[in-house]
Simulated assay, not measured.
Amino acid sequence: MTDLSLFQPLALGDLKLKNRIVLPPLTRSRSSQPGNIPNDLMAAYYRQRATAGFMVTEGTQIEPRGQGYAWTPGIHSDAQVEGWRKVIDAVHAEGSVIFCQLWHVGRVSHTSLQPDNRPPIAPSAIRATAVKVFIETGPQAGALAEPSEPVELTTDQVKELVDLYHAAALNAKKAGFDGVELHCANGYLVNQFISEHTNRRTDEYGGSLDNRLRFLREICEAVISVFGGDRVGVRFAPLFETTEEERVYLGLVERDPQHTYIEAAKILEELGVGYLSIAEADWENAPDLPASFREALRQVYSAPIMYSGRYTEAKAKEILAKGYGDLFGFGRTFIANPDLPHRLRNGLELNPVNPDTLYGGGEEGYIDYPFCNA
């Protein structure tokens, strides 16, 4: 008998998801310039993939200082709100659900991407290493660059950032998004507050784990006040093994990652956050998350859990069968296969992804991947 477990519906709060297959957040760097404005091309891209049970946008900066890569979209201007409305209308017309991933890169940025060429901001003035940012060098031309030295936020400035998350959530609701996901992974701003490696603060936002989790708690409360807990998700990247070279892109490895992220998950449970997204290591031969972590997560967090990171259909079904996860993100596979749910349901061949067209450009490698006629 064919295993159709990934095609069982799921309740996400009061939302009814038609399957367990997710388009996860995927940076594609195709917003219109100037202004980092979502456009018709992006609307076509998301519409093509709206057979997903659930969709989360690419990382979307909550303010101008939140940008670390050229041509990524924002959610802080009226023009951006209007641009996103086109995307949302296209997705809703196909009967799917879409959340906006609220993003701030913190120290993973460059002065050329910052307002008035100022330094990036961070919990502590520690430069990001073993990571590159992407800067514009001309019209539709860019290059990788080393991140600039950040400046440490004052306590008042941290509180102002919480207000900016609230404002971004209001804009997301105005645009028509079904909810928002907080990007708290991959070495970006919220991860920088959580991590013992990047947070050397001595105020209420630094020191103990409780203090390092305070910013997470406050921004969750801020966006929940706009959407309600059921319409808010949080993404973590709880890495247990990695090298220095892989660390920043994929997250920051704590001395006790299980304790750190189980305590973080307890906060989400307490606040009634609607789902938790776990970004797993996604390089070749990456170690799996320990089963003990997945089990501990299930014990403290009762809402749906999403996993992503080089997931195959077989791996997703395995994690679902064990009861560890409920939703599964298929990243590059979904980029190359806009009709991915159809292909998985019918055992059809998958298109390979073109790595040369992932970031920037136009239609090629974006909306021209072929659909299956079978």
Rank of each mutant, 00 (worst) to 15 (best):
Y307I: 10
G95Y: 13
F330A: 01
I75G: 02
P287R: 13
G176P: 12
N36M: 15
H342K: 09
L297Y: 15
I62H: 04
T312K: 01
H92W: 07
L144Q: 04
N337M: 06
T129F: 04
Y45K: 04
I224Y: 00
S195C: 10
D78F: 08
L297C: 11
V253I: 11
P257W: 12
C220N: 10
A141Q: 15
K132R: 08
D203K: 09
A281G: 05
L250D: 04
V56M: 08
E254A: 13
I98D: 01
E295Y: 14
I88E: 03
A374E: 03
G347F: 09
E363P: 01
P38C: 06
E363S: 03
E63D: 01
H342Y: 13
E218I: 14
A93F: 04
D14C: 11
G187A: 01
H183M: 07
L170V: 15
P304T: 06
G74D: 07
F371V: 09
H183R: 05
L144F: 12
A169G: 03
A79C: 09
S195D: 11
G365C: 05
I319F: 10
G233D: 02
V105D: 01
H342W: 11
G274K: 13
Q114Y: 09
M55A: 02
D40W: 13
A90S: 10
S29M: 05
V190Y: 03
P38K: 02
E349R: 11
H259K: 14
E152A: 10
A145K: 05
I319D: 08
D3T: 15
R28Q: 08
A175M: 14
L153H: 09
A122L: 12
N354D: 02
L350S: 03
A90M: 08
I21Y: 02
E364K: 10
K266V: 12
G329S: 03
P120N: 05
A321R: 00
H342G: 06
Y301H: 12
N373P: 00
G360H: 12
E221Q: 09
A90W: 10
F193M: 08
L113W: 07
D163K: 14
